[in-house]
Design a protein around this nucleic acid. Structure first.
Lengths: 234, 234
DNA sequence: CGTTATATTGAAAGCAGTCAATAGTCGTGG
DNA sequence: CCACGACTATTGACTGCTTTCAATATAACG
């Protein structure tokens, strides 16, 4: 169980101790909340299956998508400092999560150095991942943001042993647009365009990446350079 | 010494142990590097005085500003996971830093629960701070990004006991523009505009915030709503 | 099977980027 | 101490990407 929730190189004894912490797991129906902004922070949550979106509300009531969590990823790391969750976490589909009581995890990690290391590593990764996001937004045009988003999902699925080229977009176009700081219409237009030039194929929420190199090229050229990989049409 | 570098509620004995780790401090001249992308990760660095900018290079050689570090802030947290620094850290002025050997800090934090907690807290804060940045970029227009940037600096200086309304912009306009994903010209134009409407006053790199409420209003309205606080001119 | 939410596509407007020219600042060496 | 050159900052004009508004089309849900 612990292996599934918090994969980390521990010996059998240590693993048992961790297991005793992570007993509960819950099934969350689509649209249900795991936690809400301001709730007092008690647990980290690991996704065993399904997916979750996290968003905050601005002072004027607008939604701001902050994260999508996929299988194997940990939610709630940003809440440690303030002891309150900063976002609303909602299941995008029926989702199974592990509940990890943080206080006990903290205690245990004092006794198991490898566990402490893994926690530091996890948090550091999260910082890096947020920094990368910062790098895309604002500095990249709409097409690049979307290409980077698709590649990011592809990598994350691939890491967990799933196909890097075919996967399910569990979030809506509206959510994607919000996450990338674009209008829904722009996301839709660009998906259509990429589909036309055979870089990707889309059937509703199911996506196939046909030309991975092309996506990489799109991401890596400057904001307004334009030598895309479209040697296709006509 | 430790108090200055890693403020945390420890007793005298614990503080001594921490002190013994954090012996060295270095003076870095303006323009000098503290670390570079790819250097192997050995230390965290805390700023005792001065300021530092951190940037990465894109695949096509463009600079991407990722962070500004001010007095009291910790650099290098993103390097823990990969054991390599992810960015280039350069002093913006003559800067004094504490060197904190991370491996030893990790060891010590196994023995001092309060220290471990403080480290978790620090990293969690960093995650939150990056998330906030993500929230601005891409979702806010140029004026809002700049207003948010100024308020952010104001808060950070204020937290450390300095004036919230008057401070030195140690980074260049070019750096600010890059950080916010804007063109230098846009930053310059907006600073001029805010200056004209008496929201701020600028003398070269020295800035005074004259109307803090106005800045907050700018940040908090929607991306294209426009009811600014300009009841000033003529 | 109808109703509502989500997605696609088109046309027009606006914000920010680019290009260009000028002004001001900083550091170095005469 | 001043003068030169290089760098940084400011301001203006124009282009273009992305948003907004509007109209369908398609999918999801009870």
């Amino acid at each position: 169980m612990a292996q599934l929730c918090l994969p980390v190189g521990l010996n059998v004894t240590e693993l048992k101790q961790l297991d005793s912490l992570i007993q509960k797991h819950r099934l969350i129906q689509k649209g249900r909340f795991i936690y809400r902004t301001g709730d007092s922070f008690t647990h980290l949550y690991a996704i065993r299956s399904g997916s979750v979106k996290a968003y905050t509300l601005t002072s004027d009531g607008q939604i701001q998508m902050t994260d999508f969590f996929l299988l194997g990823e940990i939610m709630g790391l940003d809440a440690i400092a303030t002891k309150r969750y900063h976002s609303n976490a909602v299941a995008l589909q029926t989702t199974s999560i592990c509940e990890i009581p943080f206080h006990q995890l903290e205690q245990l990690s004092l006794k198991i150095p490898a566990l402490q290391q893994q926690l530091f590593r996890l948090m550091s990764q999260e910082i890096t991942s947020e920094q990368n996001l910062v790098t895309w937004l604002g500095r990249k045009n709409a097409e690049q943001r979307l290409a980077a988003f698709l590649l990011n999902l592809s990598n994350r699925y691939h890491q967990r042993g799933f196909s890097a080229t075919e996967f399910h977009l569990s979030m809506s176009r509206t959510d994607i647009a919000n996450y990338l700081g674009l209008a829904v219409e722009t996301v839709s237009r660009i998906l259509s365009k990429l589909s036309e030039q055979k870089t990707i194929a889309i059937d509703k929420k199911f996506i196939r990446i046909l030309d991975m190199d092309c996506l990489h090229q799109i991401v890596n050229v400057g904001k307004h350079d334009s030598l895309p990989c479209i040697a296709h049409h006509a």
